[in-house]
Design a protein around this nucleic acid. Structure first.
Length: 307
DNA sequence: CATCGATGTTTAA
DNA sequence: TAAACCTCGATGC
């Protein structure tokens, strides 16, 4: 589920399995051959996530990966290579296999199946990247240009802390935009890492209408929205899935048990009663993406309501 | 076997 | 605002 939390998990996973070790990079599919050739047989120094962007630093070269809608990494290795089967868009779980080793003691990877853009390989395992929207080698200037276009990422804050500098950047980014908060949360220059699910679920939990003009949100509401997104993204990072609805939520009472498998308050629940107020959850298209909200819990503020 | 849709972004019109 | 792009599982005939 590649919203920001997935990319931070990915960066942590790459740090664990790949950083500080020589790696081999290839492009079985062929569409990243030049980049793979440049990166292979070197030692990656740092993996970094910022919003939905992933960067791996190797001296002045930076490997940039953006998963887009359906990009994913899959991991395989021996028992010393601890990694989930996949990170990113949903993929089928890998089957068991018995590791074997080459003369140099490197694990022998299985043949790539399907469209593997990039394969990264260390002595005890490997990862395959499929379907990314971007997979490129950047120079420092190109990297800086991309970073400059990204807003603050709530996951840049140390766990348990609020970085007021980042919060104030979010606040001023909203104040300068004449678009709705629903549109603003999807703009990676306003806040980095939020996607369609976190947009819907954070606005619902804060009781904010997606149609509220971004520059009319009150100060306290901006702070609360930032804190809410921080909490939701941190939970997603810790658990590896986006779950904003919990069976033990007080609003659910005895219904919680029946709702164990439901993860979201409003995302993809249009046409059904809101679990908080009973109003029918609404859905429409906004800037080419589906927008979900509860008209009962998220009314337009009276001052800006249209007649 | 064909079509659709998805957690996203960029480019063109 | 629309189309293009990247991939694959689910759905439908």
């Amino acid at each position: 589920m590649p919203e920001g939390h997935t990319l931070h998990r990915l960066a942590a996973q790459l740090e664990e399995n790949f950083i500080g070790r020589p790696w081999r990079v290839s492009s079985p599919q062929g569409r990243f051959e030049a980049g793979a050739k440049r990166l292979t047989d070197r030692v990656p120094e740092r993996a970094q996530a910022w919003g939905k962007q992933l960067f791996v630093h190797l001296g002045p070269d930076i490997w940039q990966v953006h998963l887009g809608l359906y990009g994913a990494f899959s991991f395989r290795g021996d028992s010393s290579f601890t990694a989930p089967a996949t990170l990113g868009a949903p993929r089928v779980a890998a089957e068991e296999f018995t590791p074997s080793y080459a003369e140099d003691d490197w694990i022998i990877p299985q043949p790539a199946t399907g469209a593997v853009r990039a394969r990264i390989h260390v002595h005890n395992g490997w990862a395959d990247l499929r379907g990314p929207a971007r997979c490129a080698v950047l120079n420092p200037m190109q990297y800086e240009a991309i970073i400059a276009r990204l807003g603050p990422d709530p996951l840049q804050q140390p766990v348990g802390e609020t970085d007021t500098r980042l919060l104030e950047q979010f606040r001023s980014n909203l104040a300068r935009r004449r678009i709705s908060i629903g549109a603003a949360l999807m703009d990676q220059a306003v806040i980095a890492g939020v996607g369609n699910i976190y947009r819907a679920e954070s606005l619902f939990e804060e009781g904010v209408s997606p149609d509220t003009p971004a520059n009319e949100l009150r100060g306290a509401a901006v702070t609360a929205l930032w804190e809410r997104l921080t909490e939701q993204l941190r939970t997603g990072f810790a658990e590896g899935i986006i779950r904003t609805l919990r069976p033990e939520a007080p609003e659910l009472g005895a219904r919680g048990g029946d709702l164990r498998l439901r993860r979201h308050w409003v995302y993809q629940h249009q046409g059904t009663p809101c679990l908080r107020c009973g109003a029918t959850i609404a859905e429409r298209e906004l800037q080419g993406r589906r927008l979900y909200w509860c008209p009962g819990c998220q009314p337009l503020p009276a001052a800006t309501a249209r007649s």
